[in-house]
Amino acid sequence: MELLEQLLKCIEFGKVNKNAPYPPDMKGQDGAEELTQIALSNGISPQEILQNALIPGMERVGVKFRENKIFVPQVLMSAKAMHASMSFLKPYFSSGEVKRKGTFVIGTVAGDLHDIGKNLVSMIIEGNGWEVIDLGVDVKTDKFVDAIEKNPGCIVGLSALLTTTMPNMESTVRKIKELYPNTIVLVGGAPVNDDFRAKIGADFYSPDPQGAVDYLNKLVA
């Protein structure tokens, strides 16, 4: 399917629409916006678009980011292209025609205002077919708990960038596990490592977003 192959490339390289100047070597070509519309009008199902273009496209982005082949700006451009395409698929999500893999609730823990890492994780997971609920930065435990209550079965991701907010990550994890022992909690951020993850009773740590995607996908496989 050449059209989806082309759309996948737009996601991988961050080509948002025809007028977008980036990437320079795709100047003047159709971008994610145009190609998604064409695909839909050609009768390709939204599920197929998600499955065969968006998800594999963002997968490539996640892998290249993990391998230090691309960096934050390139990931953000890909995410922008992914979102452009996704905006045409949104109606099918609410109608139930397109199924997502599950719900992922994410936020930076209380006292911590960093959002770059959290946003990258959020976008890469969303691009892999998950519904992402982003609670933002400086998220208190109660807010996480509310989100879990409203989204039964969701998986939770916590981010911390400061050594001083790591204790807040711990108290949030403990509270979640106390109230919802079956809720799976992922943790990440520069000062966090797997020892710390084990110590605070979270389920998974990954140093990069793609690791989180791989873990989530295994859960629903």
Binding site: A20, P21, Y22, P23, V72, P73, Q74, M77, K80, N119
Partner: peptide, 10 residues
């Protein structure tokens, strides 16, 4: 953080 995309777009 807009700077990251603007580097490429603008």
């Amino acid at each position: 953080t807009d700077i990251f995309m603007q580097m490429l777009e603008n």
